[in-house]
Nucleic acid binder design. Structure first.
Length: 572
RNA sequence: CGGGGUGUAGCGCAGUCUGGUAGCGCAUCGGUUUUGGGAACCGAGGGCCGGAGGUUCGAAUCCUCUCACCCCGACCA
């Protein structure tokens, strides 16, 4: 590609709206431009990278035996009503009507559509297992889109859906996808980790997320320092239930005016927060519940919601707490409470703890189970913290990292196939509901994630397989005839041998070209013209380490070819 | 959804408090000189000041209503 004929609007300065480095660099390097909140146009440079990711994903999916299809982006409401998701999916689902006043949505995911297709077309167990995938634009009307392409509303996603006759076969399909995903992220040059996950709104049982490790990641992931346990924060479980310690103090009611938060309480009694117990009032369609957590722990709403198994889970507003219990939130406590109580596992061994007295302006000290209040139900309700014991091996401790979720695999079971009455005839000639799996990859998000992991102060440092170009040919001055001719020759030479080259043949000053080349981040660069050419030499430079070397003109074509091929072989 | 902020030339901003008919830097176009890390000088073009309504002799500026975008929060007892 010739830069003189390409739309590549680079920016000297960081755009004010960009918070994270990938967003800044994608704007500065002219890869994308924003059209609306969470909606972006892809310019030629960005599109090339997007296509690279897409092709890697496509190749690995094909290799894993999946078949590519393309499903409609616009979907009729009827399908979503069949599975109940039309009412359940909420405001994230972009809905609209056609001219006949019929309801439609722009697909945020495609379980319904693929199941509908397959229930009409698959009749026999002999056609299973089957796995269909597509690479397509999705729309999710996110509460708060941010970080550019990282959390956009419109984004490019690869989604795959597997159909198997029985659990064993599903397990196998799942494993195949898991392996394919590892291959994909490796080829993209990403540092990633697969973690256990909650299956969330899409539903199902087994589930893993693939996270690219980055400080700017929106998700927290926990991993054990001594075994291979890794899970996202929603799912991670801390191990080691503490031994019960016998009571040593009497229960006392203490006046605590203006003491509301756990920090206040800990400060007032001059103790650490882990000696306190906090009470939270939540509600579901099954009524109100009081949840108890150690003062220094955080509620994990997903765990609580799963445990209570009711719809409409939410924290009761402070005002409503007052109305319901007669106590303000700051003094809420379990002793004498009339709402059903569920306590986090970590409270099982606690003794002599401090909690709200269920009376405004008072707390209780020296509280003990069974003596002062009945033993409640215990459950895992909290987020793990760094340093917690590992629940898998019991020996290691957990650490927390930030991750960008780039892939997610689920075992859906028969959730959708059953709801949509998809059956095939089994070997015995009876109708049987197949089991499904679904497998997503955020294709556009990978582009951002890759930049988060591969950049320096000057710009992007692309891993070879995602690089928009393998080589940038930097022609110092197009008016310098010998140099221009040489640049053209190298350009054609590389192109003919399958090496993607960008020729900067613009009539720009040298500094501008260098800055843009750094931003764009092609792994290899050759500088042609100026003082070098008089000595019969050009300069070959690696973006990765910045090392430059003088190369004789005759040798440069082959050297670049070799360098590029080495990189492509090594996948760096 | 709640709170905060910003909309003025392609981009970044000043002007708004105190109304008088729009300016700066970068970018763009023409010219001259320059040419190994974002050049210098001379000249030029480009804006119904987010939109609608109102107040006024007069509105970017004051009032009302809207739309868009950005940030923070929605993990707290």
């Amino acid at each position: 590609m010739r830069l003189s004929q390409t739309l590549l609007p680079t920016l000297k300065e960081d755009p004010v709206e960009a918070q994270v480095v990938s967003h800044k660099l994608m704007l500065r390097s002219g890869m994308i431009r924003q059209l609306g909140a969470g909606i972006y146009s892809w310019l030629p440079l960005g599109l090339r990278v997007l296509r690279k990711v897409e092709n890697i994903v496509r190749e690995e999916m094909d290799r894993a035996g999946a078949q590519e299809v393309l499903l409609p982006a616009v979907q009729p409401a009827e399908l979503w009503q069949e599975t109940g998701r039309w009412s359940k999916y909420g405001a994230e689902l972009l809905r609209f009507k056609d001219r006949g006043d019929r309801d439609f949505c722009f697909g945020p995911t495609h379980e319904e559509v693929i199941t509908d297709l397959v229930r009409h077309e698959l009749r026999s167990y002999k056609q299973l297992p089957a796995n269909f995938y597509q690479i397509q634009t999705k729309f999710r009307d996110e509460v708060r889109p941010r970080f550019g392409i990282m959390r956009g509303r419109e984004f490019l996603m690869k989604d795959a859906y597997s159909f198997d006759l029985d659990q064993e076969s599903l397990d196998n399909s799942y494993k195949q996808m898991f392996t394919a995903y590892q291959n994909i992220f490796k080829r993209c040059g990403l540092q990633f980790r697969a973690v256990e996950a909650d299956s969330g709104a899409i539903g199902g049982s087994d589930s893993h997320e693939f996270h690219v490790l980055a400080d700017s990641g929106e998700d927290a992931i926990a991993s054990c320092d001594s075994c291979d346990y890794a899970a996202n924060l929603e799912k991670a479980v801390a191990g080691g239930s503490p031994e019960a310690v016998p009571a040593g103090a009497d229960m006392q009611k203490v006046a605590t005016p203006e003491i509301k938060s756990i920090d206040d309480v800990a400060g007032f009694f001059n103790i650490s927060a882990d000696k306190t117990v906090k009470a939270l009032l939540v509600q579901t369609d099954k009524g109100e519940f009081m949840l108890l957590l150690r003062g220094d722990h955080e509620l994990n709403e997903i765990k609580a919601e799963n445990y209570l198994d009711g719809d409409g889970f939410k924290l009761v507003e402070p005002g409503a707490v007052q109305k319901s219990t007669g106590v303000s939130v700051g003094s809420l406590g379990p002793v004498g409470a009339t709402t059903p109580i569920i306590a986090d596992n970590s409270l099982a061994g606690m003794s002599d703890f401090i909690c709200g007295a269920n009376e405004d302006g008072f707390h209780l000290t020296g509280v003990n189970w069974e003596r002062d209040l009945p033993l409640p139900k215990f459950a895992d309700l909290r987020n793990v913290q760094a340093g917690d014991l590992c629940s898998r091996c019991g020996a290691g401790t957990l650490r927390l990292d930030r991750g960008i979720e780039v892939g997610h695999v689920f075992k859906l079971g028969d959730k959708y196939s059953k709801a949509m009455q998809m059956t095939v005839l089994n070997q015995g000639g009876r109708e049987q509901t197949p089991l499904m799996g679904c497998y997503g990859i955020g294709v556009s998000r990978i582009v951002a994630a890759a930049i988060e992991q591969n950049h320096d102060d000057s710009g992007i440092v692309w891993p070879i397989f995602l690089a928009p170009f393998h080589v940038e040919i930097l022609l110092i001055n197009p008016k310098e005839e010998a140099a221009a001719k040489l640049a053209e020759e190298i350009y054609e030479y590389l192109k003919a041998r399958g090496i993607e080259a960008l020729l900067d043949d613009r009539n720009e000053r040298l500094g501008v070209k260098f800055k843009d080349a750094d931003l764009i981040g092609a792994p290899l660069r050759v500088v042609i013209g100026g003082r070098g050419i008089k000595d019969g030499a050009v300069e070959v430079q690696s973006r990765h380490d910045g090392v430059a070397e003088k190369v004789a003109i005759d040798a440069v074509g082959d050297l670049l070819l070799k360098r590029a091929e080495d990189l492509l072989k090594g996948g760096v």
